[in-house]
Amino acid sequence: MRRPRSSRILPLVLLVLVSACRRPSRDAEQDAGTPRGPVATLTLKGSDTLVILGQRWAEQYMKAHPGARIQVNGGGSGTGIAALLNGTTDIAMASRALQDTERERLRQKHPEGPVEVPVALDGIAFYVHADNPVDTLTLAQLKAIYQGDLTRWKDVGGPDRPITVYSRESSSGTYAFVKERVLQGQDFTERAQTLAGTAAVVNAVSLDPNGLGFGGAAYLRGVKPLKVGAESATAVHLSADSLRTGAYPLARTLSFVLSRPPTGLARNFIDHALTPEGQRTVIDTGYFPVK
């Protein structure tokens, strides 16, 4: 005996009603975290020195502006500038100035650019293991060590042990800065152990009693920073005062680089970095404000 048509439809109706009860409404989905409307995105890439600071600025900005999504990645200043050239980042983070060839290539892509915005001040610190008795190195001694002419700590007033030289990779702005300002454009010794990221260099030196490394001020934890100067008598530690007075010889500017004048989210984010709050974050991170 065939069942009435209405009896076959009833279970289907009940199933639809149950499914509708279980499915959250569109408003409920949005309230649970789905953004309302289009999401503005911004990408920063480049200097490992600037990564921590960039991430903190991004967290602050996104907290105040839930509709924004800001991604911050490292890889070195050269990597960030290359990404800017090929259009895969909005802002390149740089711990060195643009090279003439980079500037010209960016200008060819966008005649109104490039734009370099200083966002923090820094200095290159050289550091050793906490137990190393050496506390001062001159620029000439650093040059000789990183070129391989001085190879033992006794040559600079320390114990009779070999110097383990640590360096950054060649795409790093920190590497480029040291090559220009300390090695005067000459090559690093082949003995230098190249590591990706300042944090990796700091960690290696903190574990190696014979180690010598360099990097930005914000990473100096678990190692002993050295006084640096043209002469031993004028050598000083990296500090806000020594940067301000010009006594520290290895000062540098940390910058955001854009292919054209910033607008929209990029402009607002940079403005945030330069506010008093943003510059307090510079200090809290271990760098020095530009304002």
Rank of each mutant, 00 (worst) to 15 (best):
G222C: 02
L243H: 00
G123K: 00
A176N: 09
T41E: 14
F126M: 01
L85H: 09
N210D: 08
K224E: 02
L121K: 04
T79H: 05
A28L: 15
V205G: 03
G148A: 06
R36Q: 13
D241S: 11
V223L: 05
Q186A: 15
F214Y: 14
P225R: 00
R5Q: 10
Y166D: 08
E169W: 13
H237Y: 12
S167F: 10
R252H: 11
L243G: 00
K227P: 02
R252N: 08
G78E: 06
Y248D: 03
T138A: 01
G87P: 01
V236S: 02
D90A: 10
E112P: 13
A230K: 00
V13A: 13
A40P: 04
E180S: 14
V51E: 10
T89P: 07
T43Y: 11
R152V: 07
R36S: 13
A120G: 03
V51I: 12
K227H: 03
G74V: 10
L53C: 05
R244K: 13
P24E: 04
S25H: 10
S167H: 11
Q193S: 14
D90V: 09
R3G: 12
G148K: 02
A82H: 11
T263L: 10
T136F: 03
L183G: 14
A218M: 01
Y61P: 06
T189S: 15
T234K: 05
V13S: 11
G158F: 03
P133Y: 01
L250P: 01
G78F: 08
P289I: 02
N86H: 08
C21M: 14
E190M: 14
I9G: 11
D31A: 15
L226P: 05
